[in-house]
Design a protein around this nucleic acid. Sequence first.
DNA 1: ACCTGAACACCGTTCAAGT
DNA 2: ACCTGAACACCGTTCAAGT
Lengths: 220, 220
Amino acid sequence: MSDKRTRAPRNTLNPDLIVTTALRLMTADGVEAFSLRALAKELGVGPMALYTYFRNKDELVDAVRDHLLGARQLSTAQGPWQHQIRSIATGLRELLLEHPCLLRILAGRPLKGPETAAATETVVRALREAGFSKEDAARAHTTLFTFVLGAALWESQMNAEKQDREGRRRLRATMASLSEVDYPTVVDLAGELAATSGGDAQFEFGLNALIGGLEPLLDR
Amino acid sequence: MSDKRTRAPRNTLNPDLIVTTALRLMTADGVEAFSLRALAKELGVGPMALYTYFRNKDELVDAVRDHLLGARQLSTAQGPWQHQIRSIATGLRELLLEHPCLLRILAGRPLKGPETAAATETVVRALREAGFSKEDAARAHTTLFTFVLGAALWESQMNAEKQDREGRRRLRATMASLSEVDYPTVVDLAGELAATSGGDAQFEFGLNALIGGLEPLLDR
DNA sequence: ACCTGAACACCGTTCAAGT
DNA sequence: ACCTGAACACCGTTCAAGT
């Protein structure tokens, strides 16, 4: 792609092209492997060309994050609050699993911007309309968000580990190495615990527990 | 400390010294800033000296993680299952907040080893003795773990952002920039939402909801 | 305004070599 | 066994300079 013999023409670049290409590289090789130099080479320009559009690497990564958060349109589920927040949470998990790089970006830096305001609005409005207090609605929202983040992060990591057979071997070897004397219950539940490393059923179990635990707050 | 004039004497290094020093550097400057070269300089040796004890950087980071996970002794709380798992979860959160680098390590790679078998044993045993099914006990355990991970990760990041006044300014500016027309509920709950970015109360809210949501499973 | 090349101060890791 | 120095193939970013 990159033809280093000629100077890149003017306006080869624009923010959107940069972000899209960056996302492609991150998806292919992972966020940790992503570098400005590799991106520049892919775009057929020198590394410094990127600095016309982004002040530094962090800003570019933030732009990729905002691109992904903005692309997916929100669930507009109606009905009971349980159904509404379940729908938002499920949608967020799907987005995060579809784009592991987004997950890593979120796990690596705080959200400073209004990138998630729309999702937050839907969640807290559903809760407020259902009758939750201001404080409970706010706390429930963030609990939901951090749960989805943690669950997706863990699931994504375990999926990555299970990609190669070496990883699967390590996981099995670890379980087999556990002393039945020291950890009798863990050994007894080995199969069940292994099944919790990901999947829809595991996520829904947690989500159901969380939602179920919020219901009593309405009676206060 | 590092006296580059003379050759480092034999056995200046040992795994424990390396891990302890690495942890100190990570705590001071963050995991992302941590490098083998900086560690070697701090120890007064060449970078390659470390390779006698660890195959590569990842293995050393894993060793730091295992060091931290092994150091803290587990809660041995007795009594109702709710109290036992609450105690484990609270202890894990404290450990993670005390050592943000551990949090970043856990968020960055799967646990392959039996590092957390003791904590898992306590949780699943408490649940099994309370009458939960094998599957529910396993799922509840992982739900609890991922919730603590996500909550601590988010809290830790928001804390970091609020460290410097620039970060606090950004957070306030973000909230102020939100349109009351588009996000009326978010604007209305601005104060309450800001209060959910961390703290014991926020964590306990989520933990209570989760535990409360597990209770009905006992009646099936 | 938009892209470049050279340079700086870093990385992790391999390889061959000292003691 | 334990530590070294030189080298390789990378980084992000600054600075001065082209067009």
